[in-house]
Computed example of a mutant assay.
Amino acid sequence: MLFARIVLLVQALVWCGLGVLYWVRPYEMANLSGMLLMEPSSVSDAQVFYGGHQFALALFLFFAVRRVELLRPGLILVVLIQLTLTLSRLFIAWSSGSGLEGDATLYGLLYRGGISVLALLALYWLERRKEVPVEPEPVEETPPQKIREADFEGL
């Protein structure tokens, strides 16, 4: 469980950091991927959708690190989001012949792919550790005792 918690904590810290950076430095963060924020509405959209979403996901992962019953859902969330983003980036690069330019894009792709693999390994490890439920042994029922008159004497 420690490995799963570490994977979730790393991802939570990354999403938290990126979320805060998109809130406080939206222009710089958008420029890393070649986007230009030209209107105030585009700035607020970047802050909300890139910052807010990532921060909310980080909050869920922080909860998942602390609660055993949320470890699997947290890992599944990381795998679904990061693997989908990785495969989408690769598919777009393959189909359009571009999309992998820039160090930020390449490092992001490597990170997302790596954290996806680590989360999958953590899920696999958690599933292997899952204990097989053992049925309780049947308890022999004792026959009900007969009520005797002597039980009521002295009342």
Rank of each mutant, 00 (worst) to 15 (best):
A4M: 01
V7S: 04
L8A: 05
Q11Y: 01
A12I: 12
C16R: 03
G17T: 08
Y22N: 11
R25D: 04
Y27K: 04
M29Q: 10
M29K: 00
A30C: 01
A30Y: 00
N31G: 14
L32W: 03
L32Q: 04
L32I: 01
G34M: 00
G34E: 02
L36T: 11
L37F: 02
M38Q: 14
E39Y: 15
S41Y: 08
S42N: 11
V43Y: 00
S44H: 08
A46K: 00
A46S: 12
A56C: 09
A58V: 05
A58C: 07
A58S: 13
L59V: 12
L59M: 13
F60V: 07
L61K: 07
R66N: 06
R67K: 14
E69Y: 15
L70D: 00
P73L: 03
L75N: 03
L77Q: 13
V79Q: 05
I81H: 05
Q82W: 09
T84F: 15
L87M: 15
L87C: 14
R89N: 09
L90C: 07
F91I: 09
I92T: 14
S96T: 15
S96W: 09
G99D: 09
L100K: 08
E101R: 13
G102P: 05
D103E: 12
D103F: 15
L106R: 14
L106K: 14
L109F: 14
L110H: 05
G113Q: 01
G114V: 07
I115L: 04
I115V: 14
V117C: 07
V117R: 03
A119C: 07
A122D: 06
Y124L: 09
Y124E: 02
Y124V: 08
E127Y: 13
R129F: 03
V132D: 15
V134I: 13
E135Y: 02
V139I: 14
V139H: 04
E140Y: 06
Q145F: 04
I147C: 07
E149L: 14
E149G: 08
A150D: 10
A150I: 08
A150G: 03
F152Y: 13
G154L: 03
G154V: 09
G154M: 06
L155P: 01
